[in-house]
Simulated scan of single mutants.
Amino acid sequence: MRMQSVIRAIYPAQCVACDAQTESEFGLCGACWRETKFIGGLICDTCGAPLPGEDTGTIEQCDDCMTIARPWDHGRAGLIYTGIGRKLVLGFKHGDRTDLARPAAIWLARMARPLLRDDTVLVPVPLHWVRRVQRRYNQAALLAHALGRELGVPVCSDALLRPKKTKPLEGHSRDARFAALSGAIVPNPKCADVIAGKPVLIVDDVMTSGATLAASAEAAKAAGATHVSIVTLARVVKDA
């Protein structure tokens, strides 16, 4: 405890989104917390997007999930992809901010817990090996492992593979995203026994159209998963 106090005196805890000092490690300062749009209240049961109105306990869906066939059962997201939330996701994904996996998992755990079933396995969305080498890490895998520790749930990092290298999908239409991801993600035969006959919770950093998550869910079902849900750190929301 004395050593920790000395370290804290030399290196005080800082907000993960800015340089402001905080009372604890891996947290947000008051200003950044107020500016971060955490998702709560009435949400879409399929993707986790926030919906207008009050939560009355009934199952609701957003417009997209009512018109697009989703190959998973339930979905949740931790925060809206805008402002501080967008800054954190981009830093985590492209800025070597691997330290963000820990606070992200804490925020996401509250949304993910209701999706857990007996023997649930967390499975991250995979990266193509070229992109994995370029980025040096798979942010979805880091998030899955941090979330697994927070929830006490096993993680299988290699359950899904991405043998098809796709171009960056930013700025593409919804149809183009789904076309590009068709057949891009497949089950790993070496890990078939890990998820076959078990419920799977797929983990990713952000959901835009849902094309990547759809390809991952289809691959998990092809591997024998009995129930598939998805959870993402952030959700892109129209007019957020």
Rank of each mutant, 00 (worst) to 15 (best):
R102D: 06
R102M: 05
R102K: 14
R102S: 09
R102P: 01
P103G: 07
A104E: 05
A104P: 01
A105M: 09
I106R: 15
I106N: 07
W107E: 12
W107K: 08
W107V: 09
L108P: 12
A109I: 01
A109V: 05
R110E: 14
R110K: 14
M111F: 01
A112W: 02
R113H: 04
L115K: 12
L115F: 04
R117E: 13
D118L: 05
D118I: 01
D118C: 01
D119M: 03
T120M: 03
V121N: 06
V121T: 13
V123N: 11
V123C: 10
V123R: 01
P124M: 02
V125C: 11
V125N: 07
P126M: 03
P126Y: 03
P126N: 07
L127H: 06
W129G: 00
R131G: 15
R131W: 11
R132H: 13
R132L: 15
R132C: 02
R135Q: 13
R135G: 10
R136A: 12
R136I: 00
R136F: 06
A140G: 09
A141Q: 12
A141K: 04
L143V: 08
L143I: 03
A144R: 12
A146D: 12
G148Y: 02
G148V: 04
E150S: 04
G152Y: 02
P154M: 03
C156N: 06
L160R: 02
L161G: 03
L161A: 14
R162E: 10
R162I: 00
P163Y: 06
K164N: 03
T166F: 04
K167P: 01
L169K: 05
E170R: 05
G171C: 07
H172V: 04
S173A: 10
D175M: 08
D175L: 12
A176V: 04
F178C: 06
F178A: 07
F178H: 14
A179T: 12
A179R: 15
L181K: 09
S182M: 02
G183A: 08
I185A: 07
